[in-house]
Design a protein around this nucleic acid. Structure first.
Length: 370
DNA sequence: AAGTCGGGGGA
DNA sequence: TCCCCAGACTT
């Protein structure tokens, strides 16, 4: 047969079972579930894109403490926004968040256009699923979401073949999500779908015994729940090399360069980076011919989703460097200021600090001396 | 339609 | 180690 039969469960029956499950087993105490303003929901949804809840929570709390409303965020500098984003990844999210805040203030009078899915999705960083999530969660109006959790639940329930990254598969999943989404209790419904996918219908070890849909789930009926949704066809990822110049002046400050606004680590500060040692030496020869080179540090690898970057830090010292230029600056590792740093660079700069500085404000030190 | 963006966590 | 995760954007 070429056609899927209609829904296994009537839409209303699905909703009733899901909401009953949610009352008992769903998550009701996440930080963004309190005071569900469009602003708070929006920030949480952006942070949660491709990022798990446990990772997001501390970032969300810090962000709200510093930027309690969209006006505060719009008034902030991009550097400060990216500083609070450092370590969370996908930095375009942080840039888009900042840009969208300014758009909301400048063009929407400081209020999110939650009455219009199209207007929400027109804001940078908000796609179709996030737009639906913000509307549903902050207003309770009917809106359809399709994130990774919902995709997994629906792909299993209906045994939808194919990788969800393929447009045909995604269209099918959108249609299913549209079919099951109710007119009422949409806040709970959307949260329940995500909770079901994140906990019970998890990727690795779905707990089908406890699932309210185990009598209707086609993947479970076949004993193939682990096979859905199909995973992305894999490709070997290449390794690239980078020489990073760790140039310190006699005060111990380190020369940083700002990355181009778009692309890898866009807008973040990093070390001057070269394809190889020759490039690094050539740059030094031109910009700081009197610098004293030290031996290269041992290389380490930073892994991205589509390539590995083998980084070789090359320390050098200089007493004075003129004409630092527009997109360069000196950075004091012992008095770090609020800028966005590329993750491996942040680690390198922290390793420059002596162990015995004054006690850090947050008690998170791994290895305490003594 | 395919490629790009990242760090963390689980298995 | 490998794979994936509350996707969106660019080409």
């Amino acid at each position: 047969m070429t056609d899927h039969p209609p829904a296994i469960l009537a839409s209303q029956a699905f909703q009733r079972r899901l909401l009953d499950w949610f009352e008992l087993h769903g998550r009701h105490d996440l930080p963004w579930q309190q005071d569900r303003t469009p602003y708070r929901v929006w920030v949480s949804e952006i942070m949660l894109q491709q990022t798990q809840v446990a990772t997001v929570i501390p970032y969300f709390e810090r962000f709200m403490a510093r930027f309690p409303d969209v006006q505060a965020l719009a008034a902030a500098s991009r550097d400060e926004v990216l500083h609070l984003w450092t370590g969370l990844g996908y930095y375009a999210r942080g840039r888009n968040l900042h840009k969208a805040a300014r758009t909301v203030v400048a063009e929407h009078g400081g209020e999110f256009p939650v009455g219009s899915l199209e207007a929400m999705a027109a804001l940078p960083g908000i796609g179709p699923s996030t737009a639906g999530a913000i509307i549903a969660q902050s207003t309770g109006w009917r809106a359809v979401i399709l994130d990774g959790n919902v995709k997994r639940v629906l792909a299993r329930l209906h045994a939808v073949e194919g990788w969800p990254g393929r447009p045909a598969v995604e269209r099918r999943l959108w249609a299913l999500a549209e079919h099951y989404t109710p007119d009422h209790r949409v806040v709970d419904f959307t949260q329940a779908m995500m909770d079901l996918g994140a906990t019970l219908c998890s990727r690795g070890r779905p707990d089908c015994v406890a699932c309210p849909f185990n009598d209707a789930c086609r993947a479970h009926a076949r004993g193939e729940q682990r096979r859905f949704p199909e995973s992305k066809p894999k490709k070997a990822i290449p390794t690239r090399h980078a020489a990073m110049l760790l140039l310190q002046d006699d005060a111990g400050r380190v020369l940083l360069e700002q990355r181009p606004a778009s692309g890898l680590w866009g807008g973040l500060w990093s070390l001057p980076q070269f394809e190889d040692e020759a490039g690094l030496l050539g740059w030094l020869d031109q910009h700081a011919p009197r610098a004293e080179l030290d031996a290269a540090w041992s290389s380490f690898t930073h892994v991205f989703s589509h390539f590995r970057l083998e980084i070789t830090p090359r320390p050098a010292r200089v007493t004075r460097l003129d004409a630092v230029g527009e997109s360069r600056r000196w950075f004091d590792p012992e008095a770090p200021d609020s800028i966005g740093l590329a993750a491996p660079v942040k680690g390198l700069l922290e390793s420059l600090r002596p162990f015995t500085l004054s006690a850090p404000e947050s008690p998170h030190s791994d290895v305490q001396e003594k």
